[in-house]
Computed example of a mutant assay.
Amino acid sequence: MAADFSKILVAVDESAHAEKAFRHAMAIAQKFGSKVTVVHVMSAPAAGGGMGHFPVQEAVRTAVESADGLAQKFSALAKQEFGLAVETRTAKGAIADEILKAASSEHATLIVMGSRGLTGIKELMLGSVSSAVVHKSKVPVLTVK
């Protein structure tokens, strides 16, 4: 059975692992003529103790602006370095679950993601998001170090 790389979903954040994963996905897309969707999942901002009044609306606005900037960054990289257009989407919620939902709704045949990302305290659990996606995915997952 031949591998099907026709629809690639790339999960990104602001980490170096995510950018490497994106570059791998784009190289695969160039070789196989794949459609690529880039997804960024915004997790809820964490309120720290001792902060007093936590400006939730401002934190959400900042997260949305950051997500929009990330989408623009990867879209521009795809065009400039690989000569390809990508679709971008942003989701909110539990990161692994949202990546899997996006893969399902996009009918992805391959998920590409960094082995570790910027998930705050969860990073101590070395790749908890990528591990969850690998274990729950119905399609192949390429994790990039």
Rank of each mutant, 00 (worst) to 15 (best):
F32H: 15
K79R: 15
T143H: 05
E19D: 12
K145R: 14
V39W: 00
H24C: 15
V41H: 08
G114D: 06
P55H: 10
A132D: 03
M26V: 03
A2Q: 14
R23Q: 10
G120D: 08
R89H: 04
A11Q: 04
D97A: 09
E14V: 14
E106A: 11
A67V: 07
T37V: 14
M26K: 04
I8P: 02
S131V: 06
V38N: 05
A63S: 13
S105F: 05
H24N: 15
S130M: 04
V12H: 03
L100E: 08
M125I: 10
T119S: 13
A71T: 11
A29T: 01
S15L: 01
A46C: 15
V64G: 03
A47P: 11
K136Q: 09
P55C: 03
E81W: 06
V41S: 04
K7F: 01
I111Y: 05
A27L: 10
I111M: 10
V133N: 06
P45K: 02
M42R: 09
T90Q: 09
E106F: 06
P140E: 03
G83A: 12
V60D: 02
S6D: 04
S128N: 07
V10A: 07
K101V: 05
M42S: 08
V144W: 06
L142M: 14
F54P: 09
S115R: 13
L100T: 09
K122S: 12
S130D: 13
S128T: 11
D68I: 06
S128G: 13
V129R: 03
V39S: 10
I99C: 07
I99Y: 00
T143Q: 11
T109C: 13
V56Y: 01
G69A: 03
A44V: 12
Q80C: 03
E14S: 10
S66R: 07
K122W: 06
I99K: 02
A94Q: 12
A27D: 12
G33M: 12
A94E: 13
V36Q: 00
F22G: 02
S75I: 07
V60I: 14
A102S: 11
H107W: 01
A29R: 08
E98C: 05
F82S: 02
K101G: 07
V112Q: 00
A103M: 12
S6N: 11
A103P: 10
V141D: 00
P45Q: 09
A25V: 12
V12G: 06
A63R: 07
L118V: 11
V134D: 09
A96S: 13
A46K: 15
L124D: 07
G93Q: 01
I121G: 01
L124N: 05
T88N: 07
V133P: 11
F5T: 03
A59M: 15
G48C: 10
I99P: 01
E87N: 09
V129M: 06
M51I: 15
A29C: 04
G48W: 07
D13H: 10
S105L: 12
K73N: 00
T62S: 14
A3L: 10
L142T: 14
G117W: 04
V129A: 05
I8C: 09
A91G: 12
T90G: 02
S128I: 05
K31P: 03
K122N: 07
I28P: 04
F5R: 06
A25T: 15
K101T: 13
L100H: 01
V39M: 05
S130T: 13
R89F: 08
Q30V: 14
A21F: 01
G93P: 03
